[in-house]
Amino acid sequence: MRIFDPHIHMTSRTTDDYEAMYAAGVRALVEPSFWLGQPRTSPASFFDYFDALLGWEPFRAAQHGIAHHCALALNPKEANDPRCTPVLDALPRYLVKDSVVAVGEIGYDSMTPAEDTALAAQLQLAADHGLPALVHTPHRDKLAGLHRTLDVLRESALPPDRVLLDHLNETTVKPAADSGCWLGFSVYPDTKMDEDRVVAVLKTHGLARTLVNSAADWGRSDPLKTRRVGDAMLAAGFADADVDQVLWRNPVEFYGLSGRLRLDVPPPQTPGDPRGVGGPPLHEGNSILRGGE
């Protein structure tokens, strides 16, 4: 089973997680920028975070045989802090980077005017940069939040087939599907969806434009939930090709809209490899070998 986790915050995860994910079949992921749990107080700490998503984290992922891409944005929660909003002005120079495959995650948190402004501005940035957008639906007041999100999307320059609506559930899947957007389901131990509920939704709504993610982060979450969904789909009678569509082909197609997806990461080094843990990742092996002298 090959798995592409289209929404996971690896900055908060350990190397054990990377190993377990590889063993479970994860070969690619997208890490959207988000809130770190502790509020930031200046644009500079966002820039260091973006640099990590463009530098250190892909390096870590490659050592474990996993292709890492990211989505960058000012998240809705911190869009409410005027100390952080200058991030919006700096985003254009980050959105041109090779491994940025979407603007995200954006959307609503508390549905404030500041969030309206940040959402609209970043949908425009996505359109300007030829990128799709990862738009999450709020945790609180979700259905109203979805409708308000769809209103903003309709007024934006970004067509719905370049938008992934995430954190959907039974109450929001119908209007989300009717909008023409891609549909994301986050499988999270206590909140959001669980694997059996996702399988039930897949049975009702079909597999088209549907993605499943772990949304694993610093909270109580599980980076192997994508695999659990694949197993649950097979147990429920779905075919291998169906699992492949939801867990691989759909996310590849969605993020492939950026034209920047590179999935050719070789397997991780085995223990005892003379290059040792931390050795140069093979995915840039050619250029590294040329780089010496």
């Binding site: 254009p92 120079r93 041109v96 980077k97 090779d98 491994s99 034209g259 920047r260 590179r262 995915h283 840039e284 050619n286 250029s287």
Partner: peptide, 20 residues
């Protein structure tokens, strides 16, 4: 951003990572 600097950033996807 000066246009050539956008090209500088985009070299991987436009000319492939091996030649970037």
């Amino acid at each position: 951003i000066p246009p050539w600097e956008v090209r500088f950033a985009a070299a991987g996807r436009c000319c492939s990572p091996e030649h970037a």
